[in-house]
Design a protein around this nucleic acid. Structure first.
Length: 425
RNA sequence: GCGGGUGUAGCUCAGUUGGUUAGAGCGACUGGUUGUGGUCCAGUAGGCCGUGGGUUCAAGCCCCAUCACUCGCCCCA
């Protein structure tokens, strides 16, 4: 064998058939739930202006500062491989005047995200997300509906024991006051802060809240909490969200340290966690971003959305021992022996496919035994065997693979007979 | 970006204090059976032992570097 020269780029992976179908299962489940709830699918380009993400996600966030794939095109334009799903959807909303559609606009998407991070299990440089956005509705019921959409998807995927954590981080009115109080508090305790958190304090103080440093966490226990600083509007909104969730019996956990890593969020933020310990526990999350549309040049428009990692959902499925339905295999294998039979088999396969019977077969030189062995490995319920004798008599042999029983049928009747047996009308 | 672990056949893994032709199971292929699969039997292919350098009479094994994977941290999904 030739020396292997190329391999997948670091942090990226080949999705082989034996695993690809699981992704399809998750994606189909999500798509159905989203469509049922009135969401329409959108797809935006992989490449966007660098400025789009810098302005929306924000400087001082890890995603922008150290994880973006930035490249220059031949015209010298700086482009970015999509690192997250919301900014581009909002760009599209504005660019195509979706503000003049009946509001709110509900969109869902599947997209590959690129982040230049150190890979490990459940974390790749190219990973797949499914997400949804509701644009043009600021009512708390929308937040609750969106959260329940994601929860419904997890539930349909048979994922038990996911925990939902939720918080409100306020808006332009109240967040500055909170930020000020937090900074004052942290500065008063700066000696006990971990080194890295002192840097965060200077750059992006809210990020100190989800610090994992033990020394910082001690300090955080008594830190000011966002919920105590919410303005009246934000308070009412958050109370509304929780009431709707309570009404539907959704259990959640208030987490006053949850702030999420992207700057555009305001008010509601939430995240679903799996049972895994450690860093890759986050399965999906999102929040409200009422300022983003305006920030990107559109009319002031409230919006809320989430993104969920498909690889992580699948890890969680494996963990929970959930096995998705196997992809459909062919139902019929057509085996042939001898030159004239091969042509008859070739024709029969096409006739079966035209008749909506999934079929495959050998149009090669193998003996009948080898062909049946292949049929067996494919797990087809029936094989059709055509040899010299059958061609001469215009018949075929229909073999039940489970019992080994065989019967002779007229070649003109085999398609109809198989359709009947499979209940295809 | 930081710290630990691991790289031997397509897959899962053995491989003794460094010793001469590197093994098993599964899988693939061929034959036993030129018109009949699963079981069984026999056989074949598939390895520069991740890559490069070093130490040694001798390296899969020791040393260095590098790449990849993996675990933890940071951060996220």
């Amino acid at each position: 064998m030739a020396k292997q020269q190329f391999q997948t780029v670091r942090g990226m992976y080949d999705l082989l058939p034996e695993r690809r179908y699981i992704f399809n299962y998750v994606m189909d489940t999500f798509a159905r739930a989203a469509q049922d709830a009135g969401y329409q699918q959108i797809e935006t380009p992989l490449l966007e202006d660098e400025g789009l993400y810098v302005r929306s996600v924000g400087q001082g966030t890890d995603v922008v500062d150290k994880e973006m794939y930035v490249l220059e095109d031949r015209g010298g334009k700086r482009l970015v491989l999509r690192p997250e799903g919301t900014a581009n959807v909002i760009r599209s909303y504005i660019e195509h005047g979706m503000g003049s559609l009946p509001q709110p606009v509900r969109l869902y998407y599947f997209a590959d995200m690129f982040r230049y991070d150190r890979p490990q299990e459940g974390r790749y440089r190219q990973h797949k997300q499914m997400g949804a956005e509701v644009i043009g509705d600021g009512n708390p019921s929308t937040d609750a509906q969106l959260i329940m959409l994601l929860q419904r998807v997890y539930k349909r995927l048979c994922l038990p024991n996911l925990s939902l954590q939720i918080n409100s981080i306020g808006d332009v009115n109240c967040r500055p006051k909170y930020k000020k109080a937090l900074v004052e508090y942290l500065e008063a305790n700066v000696k006990q802060l971990a080194e890295i958190d002192r840097e965060r304090l200077a750059k992006n103080p809210l990020r100190v809240l989800d610090s994992k440093e033990p020394s910082t966490q001690i300090i955080l226990a008594d830190a000011p909490q966002t919920l105590n600083y919410l303005c009246e509007e934000c308070q009412t909104h958050f109370a509304g969200v929780l009431e709707y969730l309570d009404d539907m019996g959704v259990s959640y956990e208030l987490n006053h340290l949850l702030v999420r890593g992207l700057d555009y969020y305001s008010r509601t933020v939430f995240e679903f966690y799996g049972e895994r310990e450690g860093a890759q526990a986050s399965l999906g999350g999102g929040g409200r971003y009422d300022l983003l549309v305006e920030q990107l040049g559109g009319q002031p428009t409230p919006a809320v959305g989430f993104g969920a990692g498909i690889e992580r959902v699948i890890l969680e499925l494996e963990r929970a021992g959930v096995t998705p339905p196997e992809p459909r295999i062919s139902r019929v294998y057509v085996a042939s022996l001898g030159e004239p039979a091969r042509l008859a088999a070739f024709r029969l396969i096409e006739q079966l496919l035209d008749g909506n019977v999934s079929a495959t077969g050998a149009v090669d030189r193998d003996g009948i035994g080898a062909q049946l062995a292949r049929a067996d490995k494919l797990g087809v319920p029936y094989a059709v065997i055509i040899g010299q004798k059958e061609v001469k008599e215009n018949t075929v042999l229909l073999r039940d693979m489970a019992t080994g029983a065989q019967e002779t049928l007229k070649d003109s009747e085999i398609v109809a007979e198989l359709r009947r047996r499979f209940g295809i009308t």
